[in-house]
Simulated assay, not measured.
Amino acid sequence: MPHHRIILDTDIGSDVDDALALVQILGTPSLELEAVTTVYGDTALRARIVRRYAALAGVDLLAHPGVETPLSGREVWWAGHEGTLHDGLGREPVSDEPAVDHLVRRVLENPGAIDIVAIGPLTNIAAAIQSEPGFASAVRGLWIMGGAFATGEPENAEPEHAEPEHNFRSDTTAAQIVFDARIPTVVTGLEVTRQVEIRDDSVQRIAQAGPAGEALYADIAQWWEFWSTQWNVPHDPVTVLTLTRPDLFAFSGPGTVAIEPDGEGAGRSVFTPDAAGWVRVATRADAVAVGEEIVRSIVAAAANAGVLEG
């Protein structure tokens, strides 16, 4: 299985799927997590949540707080429960190097070697592109959770029926900057992530997977209560698997993506096929296999923590 060096850019702390993705990555042998950067809102708090989850999985990791305010000027959406279940979170340290500085430095020091998995609003990535002309060409690949491209193949989609999605809507300016940067990109939208569900039987397996699993279980329950539901769509973990297990997905051919900048449709994403394009869109997932792989990796991270602690 190919080995990938990655940086995770995340708005961890609201939807529990970011935390699931982080622990999943820590339990995936083919992934070498070089760094984590946080974005959107209280990014220092988000960095502390990263630190706590990594520690629970037996990993010493300092996250890099990033840009708090969307480039578009849109108000930050804040659920209000971020980090509330993690006692003493304020004592967790974070890196002194800001996220954008770290992204630029790490990528330029390793041109063509690092993939970026971006599972929050794209503000940090856009800021890095704007701050350093050589950044975009030095990124090996970009793996984005975001957008909605209607149903079926993007080539046959009806863009006016595709709903705006949170990550793109939160910073439409940043999203368009990123998609225009010609970085080789794979994007996974709602029409694919919603094919996969994490229900109670899988949650119970996670809950029994050591301290990290227990913390995830509590955050899952909190998220379920927030939305009055009993299941979870693992948007971000699904996106991670498009990198590590592309055999479980179908993808479009190359093309470009445009983001509607404002109005009621702000954040709506439109894929246009183009043989010279640099973006591919996930179009289908093997939902059962993807769900099982996510849970398996999370459980493996807990097992690894036991070995490290021993």
Rank of each mutant, 00 (worst) to 15 (best):
D15F: 10
D15I: 03
D17E: 06
D17M: 05
D18M: 09
D18W: 06
D18S: 15
D18Y: 03
A19H: 01
A19T: 05
L20R: 12
L20C: 13
L20I: 14
A21F: 01
A21W: 01
L22D: 11
L22P: 06
L22A: 14
V23S: 02
L26R: 14
L26C: 11
G27Q: 04
T28E: 13
T28C: 12
L33W: 12
L33V: 06
E34A: 15
V36D: 07
T37G: 04
T37I: 04
T38P: 01
T38Q: 10
V39D: 00
Y40V: 08
Y40W: 05
G41A: 04
G41I: 04
D42M: 11
D42H: 13
A44I: 05
A44L: 05
A44D: 02
R46E: 07
R46L: 08
A47T: 01
R48C: 01
I49G: 10
R51T: 10
R52M: 07
R52T: 09
Y53F: 15
Y53C: 00
A54I: 08
A54P: 00
A55H: 13
A55I: 00
L56G: 07
A57D: 00
G58F: 14
V59K: 12
D60I: 12
L61M: 12
L61S: 01
L62I: 10
L62S: 08
L62V: 05
A63C: 09
A63M: 08
H64T: 07
H64W: 11
H64P: 00
H64N: 10
P65L: 15
P65F: 15
P65C: 15
G66E: 01
G66Y: 09
V67W: 03
E68H: 07
T69N: 11
P70H: 06
L71A: 07
S72I: 09
R74F: 10
E75N: 05
E75I: 03
E75M: 09
V76Q: 03
W77G: 07
W78F: 12
W78H: 13
A79R: 12
G80Y: 05
H81A: 09
H81F: 14
H81G: 07
E82I: 00
E82S: 11
E82Y: 02
G83L: 02
G83S: 10
L85F: 05
L85Y: 04
H86V: 12
H86K: 00
H86P: 00
D87L: 10
L89N: 07
E92F: 01
E92G: 02
E92H: 08
V94M: 12
V94D: 00
D96G: 15
D96R: 04
A99T: 11
V100P: 05
V100F: 10
H102Q: 07
H102N: 02
H102G: 01
L103G: 04
L103N: 04
V104W: 02
R105E: 09
V107K: 08
L108S: 13
E109D: 13
E109C: 06
E109S: 11
E109K: 06
N110Q: 05
N110H: 15
P111G: 04
G112N: 13
G112P: 04
G112C: 14
A113P: 00
A113D: 10
A113V: 14
I114R: 03
D115W: 09
V117A: 13
V117S: 08
A118T: 06
G120Q: 04
G120M: 06
P121K: 11
I125E: 01
A126I: 09
A126E: 01
A126G: 03
A126R: 10
I129W: 10
Q130F: 00
G134M: 14
G134K: 15
G134N: 15
